[in-house]
């Protein structure tokens, strides 16, 4: 047991780390992440209704007239329209938020290493390609399970049912009265919405989501079950 792992030993901390009391923690780069709550397998929970804190998984944004070329050169496949998202071959995900703005979400497979490197290696130069500190500006939650869109319907005025909001759809909208970016990158096997919100509001939205999830027996879960899919 790695009971000695504590968020306060790391420089990077999720705004939600105090919500993970009692969970089994694992390392994610220079920070910690919840592997699972309790001893039980969380696959069934994931399928039903679960909320996962991915705040410590790297993510970054790029914006500007030169952003698309920059990212293509670095091997990313870019969505061909705003408010669409694509999963890359390594599991990273790229969402296009406007004509020239992109959001890169790290993959659990490499602990977000590729995306973390993008943030580290970016140089501010003459070209119009501006880094956006999305890991610090936004909290990242993942809402999974068959009830995901029913949960969101209690908080959000955009129709997120699969028929209207299929895989690859992105909505920049309001949920529980704060701004959010919702991305459907689920699949047939596991419906799943990525939710990014103002980092300072992470605790607020976490509570609002758990409250909305209660009627579906929704709970927080860790990343182990996600990784072992």
């Amino acid at each position: 047991m790695m009971t000695s792992l504590q968020a306060s030993q790391c420089l990077e901390r999720s705004p939600l780390y105090r919500r993970h009391a009692g969970a089994t923690l694992g390392r994610l780069g220079d920070s910690l992440v919840v592997s699972r709550y309790g001893a039980d397998d969380e696959h069934a929970q994931l399928q039903r209704c679960a909320l996962i804190d991915l705040c410590n998984l790297p993510r970054v944004g790029f914006r500007g007239a030169a952003a698309a070329d920059y990212l293509r050169e670095r091997g990313y496949q870019l969505p061909d329209a705003p408010n669409r998202a694509l999963t890359q071959s390594d599991g990273s995900q790229v969402a296009r938020l406007s004509q020239n703005e992109y959001l890169l979400l790290g993959s659990l497979r490499d602990g977000g290493a590729r995306i973390a490197a993008e943030e580290r290696n970016w140089q501010f130069g003459a070209s119009a390609n501006y880094l956006l500190p999305r890991q610090d500006s936004h909290a990242w939650l993942r809402l999974t399970g068959e009830h995901a869109c029913a949960v969101m319907a209690k908080l959000c005025g955009v129709d997120l049912r699969p028929a209207a909001f299929g895989t690859g759809a992105v909505a920049q909208t309001s949920a529980a009265r704060i701004n959010v970016i919702v991305i459907n990158l689920g699949d047939e096997a596991l419906p799943c919405l990525q939710i990014l919100c103002d980092r300072a509001s992470a605790n607020y939205l976490w509570d609002a989501l758990l409250d909305a999830m209660a009627e579906f027996d929704g709970r927080p879960a860790g990343i182990d079950a996600l990784l072992q899919r």
Binding site: P82, N83, T173
Partner: peptide
């Protein structure tokens, strides 16, 4: 609630604007 068609985000509740 009224719907506003946003050139970037499509039709949305007017409360989003």
């Amino acid at each position: 609630m009224k719907i506003m068609p946003c050139p970037l985000n499509g039709p949305r509740n007017i409360s989003e604007f």
